[in-house]
Write a protein that binds this DNA or RNA. Sequence first.
DNA 1: CTGACCGGTAAATTTTTCTTATCTGTAGAT
DNA 2: ATCTACAGATAAGAAAAATTTACCGGTCAG
Lengths: 304, 304
Amino acid sequence: MAGKIDLRRLPPLKALRGFEAATRHQSIRDAAEELCLTHPAVSHQVQLIEEALGVPLFVQQGRHIVSTEEGRVLYPYVRSAFESLLEGVEAAQRNALDKPLRVQTYITASIRWLAKRVPQFLAEHPEVKLTLSTSGTDWEFDDKHADVGLVYCETPPDPAKFHWVPLFDYALFPVCSPSFQQEHGGAVDARGLMDLPLVAIYTEQQNWEGWFRSAGVAYDPHVPYILVDTCAVAIEMAVAGQGVALINGPFVDKELADGRLVTPVEHREVCPGGWGLVCRKDLKDNVRVRTFIDWVAGHAAAMG
Amino acid sequence: MAGKIDLRRLPPLKALRGFEAATRHQSIRDAAEELCLTHPAVSHQVQLIEEALGVPLFVQQGRHIVSTEEGRVLYPYVRSAFESLLEGVEAAQRNALDKPLRVQTYITASIRWLAKRVPQFLAEHPEVKLTLSTSGTDWEFDDKHADVGLVYCETPPDPAKFHWVPLFDYALFPVCSPSFQQEHGGAVDARGLMDLPLVAIYTEQQNWEGWFRSAGVAYDPHVPYILVDTCAVAIEMAVAGQGVALINGPFVDKELADGRLVTPVEHREVCPGGWGLVCRKDLKDNVRVRTFIDWVAGHAAAMG
DNA sequence: CTGACCGGTAAATTTTTCTTATCTGTAGAT
DNA sequence: ATCTACAGATAAGAAAAATTTACCGGTCAG
C-alpha cells in the first residue's frame, strides 16, 4: 500500500474514455457511436484532456482528425491503465466469487425444496460455492452468518436494510396418505377432520386453530394432536399414514402429484406474508448473491 | 493501436480516486481531506464502485473502515492504472516540450528587447527550445507558422480565436543623441523640432504627422525626412547623431538610461493599442506557450 | 458547384457530483 | 453507567459537470 501520491495532476478520468475511443477510431463520430454518446460530447471530452495536459492531442486534417505525436505517445498509457482496471475488477470479482455463499434456510424448505435443486444450481454455476445452514429453530434471518436467507416472513422485512424477493405465498392446507383417508371413511369435511389424528408442529400449534376457523368450523381445543418438531417430520408422518398434517408452500407438490399424499379437504387458509429470499441491501448486487437469487427466483416462478 | 475493447465494464472512473485514497488511509475522512472533498462525497464514491462491481470493498469495524479482501485485491490494479496515466501525461508533455516553440516578432522588438532576454529564458527553462522568426514586413500574427507572437496591435485580436497578453502601451516620443542636440542649439520645443533632420520609417511616415498634431503643432508636409526601413535602423541613426527618431515602447530604455540618447522634447503621443503577446486560444494552456508567456510578461512588467 | 460528411461551437438540459444537515453506532472518559 | 467526541452512513438540496440539441463552417466527391 505505497504511500504519498500526487493525484492532482491526473487528467479528467471520465473524459479519458472519449480520448481512447477517438484515438482508436481516428474519428470523433465513430468514437461517439461506440460510447453511445453524441459527437459534441466526445469532442468536449477530448478538449478537456487537451486543456488539462496543455498539449494538443488531435489536429484536423481535411475533414478528419489525426492524432498528434503527443496523442500517439499518450494512447498506450491510457490503454494500459484501462486494462489494468479491467483486470482489477475481474480479480476482485473472482475473489468474491471464490468464497462460498452462505445460505440460511428452515429445515423444511431446505430438505423438501432447496436441497433438491442445489445440485442443478451448482452444475449451472460451477464458479459459485454454497454453504447451506439449515435450522429448525431460528426464524429470524441472521445477516451476520448468512448472505442469503430462504425464509418465511409475515410482513416483508425492513426495506431500508434488506432486499426481499417473494417466492411463494403461504397457504395452509391439510394432507394425508390415500390409505389413511380410506381407513377413516373416505371424503370428509372440515368438521369431520377434527375427529382424526392431526399432526401439529410444536412451535405452530396455533396453525390448526386458524385453519379450522378460516374453514368456518368452531375450534375444539381438545383435538387429538400428534406433536412433532418440524414440518418435514409432519410430512413424513402423513406419508406414513399416521395422521393429517397441515402444510404450506410447495413442499409436498411431488407427493401430491404422484399420489403418495392427498388433500382430504380442499380448503386452503391463505395467510399473510409468504416465503421469499432475503439479503442485506448492500449485498443485493453482489455477483454471487445476485446469481443465486435470480436462479432460485426463476425456478420458484417456473415450478411453483 | 489495438482493436476492440469492452469499456462498458469499467468502473466509474472518477470515483476511483476516492477508493484509492480511502484504501490508502483506511479512513473516509482522511481520504476526503486529501482530495479536498467532504466525507459524504468520498463515502458515496466508494459505494458507487461497490455497486458497480457488486463486491463490498470496505467493512465497518468499530468506528473505522477496513478494506475487505476484495478491496485489497483491487487496490494495486487501480494504483498501477493511475501510475500509468501519470506516466502517460508526463511522456506527452515531455514530448510537447521537446519541440521548439516558434516565436514571431517584429525585427525591432526582437533586436532591441526580446533577443537580449532570450538567453536568460533559455537558461531558466532549459527544457524549452525556441525558434525566433523576425520580420520587418509581416504585421499580422501568422498562427500557421508561429506558436506565439510578440506584436503590436491597435485593437486586441479577436478573443474568440486568440489569447492576448498586453505588455507595453504604444506612446511615440522623439529621441536623438546628446551631441546632436547640442549641435542644433540645445533644448527646443515641438515647433523647433520640425526644422531638424527627422528620421522616419517608410511604412510609418504618418507617425511624425500624428505626433506633431498631438503636440499642438501645425504639421508641415515638407519637413526634411530621412527614410529608413525599420525602427531598429532609426534608433541607430539617432544614436549616431544623424537626426531625431520617433520611437515607441521600451526599445531605447537602455540608451536613455546610459545617456547615449536624450529626448529633445518631452511630449509623448499616446496611441491606441499596444505591444503584447498573442497565441491561438487553444494553445494558451500549452506548457511551452504558457511558460514562455508567463516569463515574458513577468519581465515586461518588471523592467518596462 | 452542390450536397453529404465531419468536426467545432453555443445554449440549454439533464445528470452527476458535492455539500449541508442530521442520524447511528462506537470507544474512551468521567 | 452515562456522557462526549469521533467515524461513517444517509437524505435532500445545491452546485458543477456532462450531455444533447441545434447550428455553423470547412472539405471533398460527384
